[in-house]
Computed example of a mutant assay.
Amino acid sequence: MGRQRLPKRANAPLSRLKCCHYVIISFVTCFAGFSAFSVSYYASSTYLRETLSHFFSAGPLEIEYAASLRDLFEFYKSKNFPGKVNSINIDYYLKYNDFDYRIPQSVTYTSAIYNDNIEILFRLPQKTAISAILIIFHSCRHTAHDWFYTYERQRIIGAAIDLGYACLVFQATNNSTRCWSNKADIHENKDVKMVFKGLDGFYKEYPNLALLPIFTFGSSSGGLFSSIFVTNQRYRIHGQALFISIIHPEILYTRVKANKYPSTVWIRVCRT
């Protein structure tokens, strides 16, 4: 007598449905847990607050400008933090030999166009004998013109001129980020080539300055570029100042540790 085949269980579709429900619930639980962790993580920083304020703010924040130059200096006075004694106080009454940076009309400079439309902004000492050249490289999102229109940078220009430095300010070739090229190989660095061409034109116009020692000052991205530029063999650099910047890591290992590098001064900003 043959054995009859039993029909499939009627609850088989129901079992598959429950299995699908378990998978969906597990996925939703994992997603909710991950979301909660992400929110908790970013809430501990300012990222979430800045993002939410950006989307839900009523409109762009209005910047309040100082009513007078004296008010601006009040803003820069050191605040009550532990390192106050080491902080910088801007002296409202400070004057330089060549100009009074409180009077914008006195802070003049020359803008010259050289090879391939390379612009150099420069100020030559007028009341002090020229003893050296100072090449200045700006930071990201800034321009060469900022060095003659902002008080902090004007102070650096004024101090350098009083020491007899002719100040030459270059503009990075990247017009979008305004940052300097960080390629360590100077033969592949387009900004190095640009500075070469600019200096060639400048010295052709001022041949009496060609034998003076050259120093560089680089701020942030400009400092990183300066650490590369000083390795060139075309224009010998006698020293550099790096403002809130570092020496390019590749240059550090190939040049600095081999004692084939000019004197370097670091200027940092800190609160201690």
Rank of each mutant, 00 (worst) to 15 (best):
E205V: 00
A160C: 05
N259A: 14
N232K: 04
L69T: 05
Y92P: 04
K95Q: 15
A12G: 07
Q233R: 07
L224G: 10
T173L: 12
F170H: 00
I24H: 15
S221I: 05
K260P: 07
L209Y: 05
N189C: 06
G198N: 02
F34N: 08
I103V: 15
S40V: 09
I186S: 05
Y203W: 01
S176W: 04
F225S: 03
L52S: 11
S221E: 10
L121D: 14
S219N: 12
R268F: 10
T128K: 02
A166H: 01
I136D: 13
P60A: 10
V195S: 06
Y101M: 15
R123C: 12
G2K: 09
S139L: 06
F27G: 08
F196D: 14
Y206S: 09
S220E: 11
I103P: 06
I161D: 06
E119G: 01
Q105L: 10
T128C: 08
I88M: 06
A12E: 10
K18V: 05
Q233G: 12
I244R: 02
Y235M: 03
K18A: 07
N117R: 08
V39D: 00
F75N: 10
H248D: 15
N11I: 01
Y261N: 04
A210G: 07
L17I: 12
R9G: 13
H138M: 13
L242H: 02
I228S: 05
S87E: 12
N174H: 09
F196I: 00
S68P: 00
Y253E: 15
G201C: 07
F81L: 14
E74Q: 04
C179T: 05
A43I: 14
V39K: 09
S106K: 02
D116W: 01
S53I: 01
C19A: 15
I135Q: 06
S221G: 13
N259H: 13
H248G: 10
F37S: 08
F73S: 10
F137W: 02
G218K: 03
F99P: 04
L14E: 12
R16F: 07
P213I: 00
T29P: 06
F202W: 04
I246P: 03
P262G: 03
